[in-house]
Design a protein around this nucleic acid. Structure first.
Lengths: 329, 329
DNA sequence: CTGAAAGCGCTTACAG
DNA sequence: CTGAAAGCGCTTACAG
């Protein structure tokens, strides 16, 4: 038994017009007289007609699908991002194909999926991608943006928070409060995000003659927790800890507290992102707010404009965020 | 300038075979001699050919896309679910179209999207859906499963944790510890999940002659937090609080602690889900673990079997979870 | 503005 | 097993 598919021809017959006219009624930008439109719409409604998206994509050689690649759904920052992208693209008539990579680097079967569906655009959030793979998208003239990540090569578009400026501000704030040795906890070292946040922080501390020690972690709660234990077992409690994201900062706080270390009296803690939990009474974490909405808007606008007219122009867009002072400093 | 699309015909020409043969090489289940296969594969590789998914879907009147509808991405339980579904479906050659609804009820434009893409199957997680909309999927013979929700009507398939059994066990556990009045904090009242969890809890408490009071909330952290404040301002601290999910339980804990109420000494707290945070040292929440993996497997298997042969058979699948005792009881 | 017709890139009976 | 051909449901020049 087949699904009873009703097509444009059926509607045309019932409406007493040509199949072309039916098509025009449902195709944005095509012209039909109001009278034809009404006849077609009535017939379509009666039959329960809906245009076949696959036939459309086939003939136009384009799709209304955006590929969104994500890895760290465990970090509450990203579900938030996913939600905003989906909502925003829906308004523009695009749907989101969700691709999850377990690995740091996006795998070739995921790329195949994206390419097979001829996605209108691709967003890579916290996964990375080898150069030649990114080039595969360029070769197919599929616009691509790295979200919250930046590649060293300038030939790819990226949208990030101004990490350098943010981490400078954080360092200045901390330097005004404390002058003892501090700690920076990095996320995965191969991410621009982690590197830039360290860079701005280091710059200012150097100016002020304040030393800091770096611990390498992985942007996860457990990573933060374990790093805090290492810090403590190293003997001296630092005057402040700047973690490259909030979820690590929460781990740090929990580990410190477990050892009876007072925050902020003995050590100040600052995160980055301003995820929901940062404002929870159990944490009240001082942090830097990433302006997700602005970042999403920038990304969507770029993608939309590249979809309507492909230029391949790429640049590193940076959006300012804002400092959120709470009770851990 | 057009995208340089290479199609099966191009490959056929280079390989010296017919376009049909090229198609057969890339279509699972079709037969070709090994010699032909090699020639085609070589040519395809040289040209960078990949089958057009839209032409495929058009001709087969089917797709390799699963629609996943979700609302509460703010609750860490759901990103986890999303991740597992994506991973599992990928193994079976399906991609996930992510649909986010802000509203409790899934909106008609989302349904249109799903229908236009002729999705192979649909999963509704925490959103609800009016009966006639669900019927639209049935009319199109698109298998549908409600995940972690159950409709009163038995004509739809659902996969849930055995909430009744779980909440009975929770009540028994609590009754063995305390006999004073308890509290149940519901999620959104129109969800089966919340109702069933109350039912099992109420049943057992009644048997044991223990009273409980119900507060209505919304499955969110803030909801739990505010409810705890209400509980406290009502005067008497209950012997135990059972929150319909973990994220509310965390809110409850934070509100209690803020008022200096000791957990578990003055009041015991139990959640439901076993999200990552429940195990964090700041909480160590006693809870019921929902077996996400098993629930996802059940859902995927059902969908896959209905996709390969549609029966329309529906039943309410229930999966057992397990009690996780930590330090809040 | 409207209709007849070509064609997007595939799958799949049908012959051979 | 393989090839020629029909056809999936659309969009879009091209005439009228």
């Amino acid at each position: 038994m087949m699904k009873p598919t009703v097509n444009a021809k059926d509607v045309a017959k019932l409406a007493g017009v040509s199949q072309s006219s039916v098509s025009r009624v449902f195709f944005d930008g095509a012209k039909v007289t109001e009278k034809t439109r009404q006849k077609v719409l009535a017939a379509a409604k009666e039959l329960g007609y809906r245009p076949n998206e696959y036939a459309r994509s086939l003939i136009t050689n384009s799709s209304k699908i955006i590929g969104l690649v994500m890895k760290g759904v465990q970090n509450p920052f990203y579900p938030q991002v996913l939600k905003q992208f989906t909502t925003s693209f829906k308004k523009h008539g695009y749907s989101v194909l969700f691709v999850h990579t377990n690995n740091d680097e996006i795998q070739s079967d995921d790329i195949d999926t994206l390419l097979n569906y001829n996605v209108a655009g691709v967003i890579i959030t916290d996964a990375s991608m080898s150069m030649n793979v990114a080039e595969a998208f360029q070769a197919n003239r599929i616009p691509l943006v790295f979200f919250n990540r930046k590649l060293t090569s300038s030939q790819f578009h990226s949208v990030c928070c101004n990490n350098l400026n943010a981490s400078r501000k954080i360092a200045e704030y901390l330097a005004a409060l404390e002058t003892g040795e501090m700690v920076y906890i990095s996320g995965n070292e191969d991410t621009s995000t982690s590197r830039e946040r360290e860079q701005g922080f280091a710059e200012v501390l150097k100016q002020r003659g304040i030393a800091y020690k770096k611990y390498t972690s992985d942007f996860s709660y457990n990573g933060g927790y374990e790093t805090a234990q290492k810090i403590l077992s190293a003997g001296k409690i630092p005057s402040a800890v700047f973690a490259a994201n909030d979820i690590m900062a929460l781990g740090v706080m929990d580990a410190f507290r477990k050892q009876g270390v007072q925050i902020p009296e003995q050590v100040k803690v600052i995160g980055f992102d301003n995820i929901d939990m940062a404002s929870w009474p159990a944490y009240e974490l001082t942090t830097w707010e990433q302006p997700i909405e602005k970042m999403v808007d920038e990304t969507v606008n770029y993608l939309l404009s590249e979809i309507s007219e492909y230029t391949g122009r790429a640049r590193a867009v940076e959006v300012e965020g804002s400092f959120v002072e709470r009770k851990t400093t």
